[in-house]
Design a binder for these strands. Sequence first.
DNA 1: TATCAATAATTGATATATCATTTAATGGAC
DNA 2: GTCCATTAAATGATATATCAATTATTGATA
Lengths: 142, 142
Amino acid sequence: MDRLESVILFLIDQTSKTAKRFTQRELDKKGWDITIDQWVLLKIVEESNGLSQNELAEKSSRDGASITRSLDILEKKHYLERKATPEDRRQYKISLTPEGQAFIAKNMSLVNKHRAKSLEGFSSEEIKSLKEMLLRIQKNMS
Amino acid sequence: MDRLESVILFLIDQTSKTAKRFTQRELDKKGWDITIDQWVLLKIVEESNGLSQNELAEKSSRDGASITRSLDILEKKHYLERKATPEDRRQYKISLTPEGQAFIAKNMSLVNKHRAKSLEGFSSEEIKSLKEMLLRIQKNMS
DNA sequence: TATCAATAATTGATATATCATTTAATGGAC
DNA sequence: GTCCATTAAATGATATATCAATTATTGATA
């Protein structure tokens, strides 16, 4: 029977927490006014404009209720907006505002710096294989 | 510039969330009355009896305040207990109760089944290299 | 031994996640 | 067209995470 420190799911969770906490603190120091999860939401919207809230929940692996509340916050900051969908009045299409675009533009290089830091010393083959294994685990757990 | 889906830190977080939600739901169905994070705490105590709360926070990559509250819950369920430390009356040593031991014994095989499921199709070399890469990322982010 | 900085755990305030429920709108089946 | 199950998003209740501040204790130093 394995000790916890060698259980992959435990290590993944631990790595996620460690990296997130580290990055969040660094970004707070730089005067960020949003969380990493909110940033991720902005990036998803940037990459796929006009998604519905359910689609955002799916893409970000989060609960729909949680997305509703994050969108409220990001809308209040004027980083993105809900646009009515004429074909289906129950749903919205979410899109970036110019302020949202500007916020991403201003911070992207800092985020890239952190991503690079997390992978210092990794070869591109390693990164490729790591990605692929993470996806396999996700598939196993769904 | 990479799309989010190929950003390692994003994939790690996503994998962690997916696996945790999946496992939590499965365990809830079996009538578990604790969360995965509480389970992890129990397991840490089982593997290293008599740690202080700060040490538990460190090992579980969680905040001390959060540990305090989880311990309150687990103590109320009589799964573990705080024992006074005579050498330092500020700290406690945390240990499993017989009920805690029994709970682990009863559920361990189910947990192992989920761990195995997450790694279906993985060779032991792959697992070894995945572990090692996760630890390297943690080191990079600390 | 009196003082004071450092430390362990707790507590308060606040933010966010999750599940269940509710509301409004949609789209079949009849 | 009416009924009704389904769906999208919002909301309420509850649990947990984080940070900052607090409380009690320790240990070093003057």
